[in-house]
């Protein structure tokens, strides 16, 4: 049964890959949440609870939005950009995979940030 034998490792590696992605995403969400909470609380020193949590949320949304746009661009156009850099002979080590990884981190950090800022807003009764 060669087909079944080869299908098992493929399926296992896919599950393993998804598991690693989920763990990595959770780690960056946690870091983002810590950042969001810290910034919300730090801004409380100078602003009202409403202004502090709103500003922290907007900053987090900026990080999240930028990360998602850049990640999508890396996924959609990464190979084209790689090819063009190679064609123009200006490659400086930039790869589609590294860009995708970097913006994955930015996106999930932003997601954690906005969630924490929203949670702070609720906890402070804004």
């Amino acid at each position: 049964m060669p087909s079944t034998d080869s299908a098992v490792p493929v399926s296992r590696s896919r599950v393993e890959r998804i598991r690693r992605l989920v763990v990595a995403a959770a780690r960056w969400v946690a870091i983002g949440a810590a950042l969001g909470a810290a910034i919300s609380l730090a801004l409380l020193i100078v602003w009202t609870p409403r202004a502090a949590t709103d500003t922290a949320f907007a900053l987090g949304a900026l990080v999240l939005g930028f990360g998602v746009i850049a990640w999508s661009t890396a996924v959609g156009l990464g190979h084209t950009i790689e090819g063009m850099k190679a064609h123009l002979d200006v490659s400086a080590g930039w790869t589609e995979a590294s860009a995708r990884e970097a913006f994955f981190v930015v996106s999930w950090t932003g997601a954690g940030w906005v969630v924490a800022a929203a949670a702070c807003s609720i906890l402070l009764g804004v």
Binding site: D54, G65, F66, V68, W71, S72, G76
Partner: peptide
């Protein structure tokens, strides 16, 4: 299909950035 699927994250990202910038 892959390209059309990417349309979702791009529009979500743009909507989020515009919303944030307007409120900042």
């Amino acid at each position: 299909a892959k390209r059309l699927l990417l349309l979702g994250p791009v529009l979500f990202g743009v909507a989020t950035v515009v919303f944030a910038i307007l409120h900042l």
